[in-house]
């Protein structure tokens, strides 16, 4: 349920310097957007610094004790450590688990979006450049991918290839490249009609050169703008997959897996296992969406 779902077409806009400055000015002037940027910065920093600031390494099984499991926020553990946000069923310190989970979620979100961008841009560019049968085949595959619920594709794929951060990234790339391909193709088609490309073609420049040196840099803007929102989409998708029991390994929980693990304890009153990582996840997705939305509007990209 991403705003980009309603996309049917995309129009590229010139991303010249003046506009860029205008955008930056607008971001600074809007309090919500400014807040979102600051929040996003903090979350990124926390994720980067997790190994240095977390009281415990939640990925190291030797440092966990099942005797300390499901303790309330603020409890003291057997080794004297204070669990400010409580512990989960394995005795993981929730605060540490959230910091590390943030790391995993961001890693998955950023890497898979980058991967999907690369695949999507290449496919879209190829479709636009060659047209005809190549275009038809690529775009039918894109239609097919977009017509399917992404969660189902990723679920079935992961069910057959197993758990792992790398595997989740592959699955998300698989379901997300198609939207970029469609955007890229639309933008590149607009660009291709411009005179300088025609001139380059007439001049006999190699196709690869035209694609990479002219078409790509001049039509990539809109795709990049939309990708901010897609990072949020990728993080949500990872969380949902973990909730459904496929996804990252259980000993290296992402935010989504932490929430999923807490689900069964929710009704027994042990709310902290699901609630705190949930808040972290929502803050992350919200700030990404707010920033992405502002970027999108400023560049006037419909997607």
């Amino acid at each position: 349920m991403n705003p980009s779902r309603t996309a049917t077409s995309a129009v590229a806009a010139d991303a010249d310097t003046a506009l860029r400055q205008k955008v930056l000015r607008r971001i600074r002037s809007r309090p919500t957007t400014r807040g979102a940027v600051i929040l996003l910065g903090i979350l990124l920093l926390l994720a980067l610094l997790a190994p240095f600031i977390a009281p415990q390494n939640p990925h190291d099984l030797a440092s966990l004790s099942v005797m300390d499991n499901r303790l309330e926020p603020g409890s003291q553990g057997m080794t004297g450590i204070t669990y400010w946000l409580g512990t989960d069923a394995q005795g993981r310190d929730m605060l540490s688990a959230i910091l590390y989970g943030l790391r995993t979620s961001l890693l998955v979100g950023l890497t898979s979006t980058a991967g999907a961008l690369a695949v999507g841009i290449l496919a879209g560019l190829t479709a636009a450049q060659f047209g005809g049968a190549v275009d038809a085949v690529i775009m039918r595959i894109v239609d097919f991918m977009l017509g399917f619920p992404s969660i189902l594709i990723a679920l079935v794929l992961l069910a057959s290839i197993g758990r792992g951060v790398d595997k989740v990234i592959v699955a998300i790339i698989l379901v997300q490249w198609a939207q970029y391909a469609r955007l890229m193709r639309a933008a590149a088609l607009v660009e291709r009609r411009k005179e300088y490309i025609e001139a380059a073609v007439n001049f006999g420049l190699p196709t690869r050169h035209i694609m990479l040196a002219h078409l790509l840099p001049n039509s990539i803007g809109s795709v990049l703008v939309v990708s901010t929102i897609s990072i949020a989409g990728a993080i949500t998708l990872e969380a949902t997959l973990s909730f459904l029991g496929v996804g990252v390994p259980v000993t290296q929980p992402s935010l989504g897996l932490l929430i999923a693990n807490g689900f069964e304890f929710l009704l027994s009153g042990e709310y902290w296992i699901a609630a705190f990582p949930g808040i972290a996840l929502v803050l992350l997705i919200m700030s990404l969406n707010l920033v992405g939305e502002r970027l999108r509007r400023s560049f006037n990209v419909r997607g």
Partner: peptide
């Protein structure tokens, strides 16, 4: 004995 856990649905 440094142990990892691979948890999966019964179907798998």
């Amino acid at each position: 004995i440094r142990s990892e856990v691979d948890a999966m649905a019964r179907a798998i």
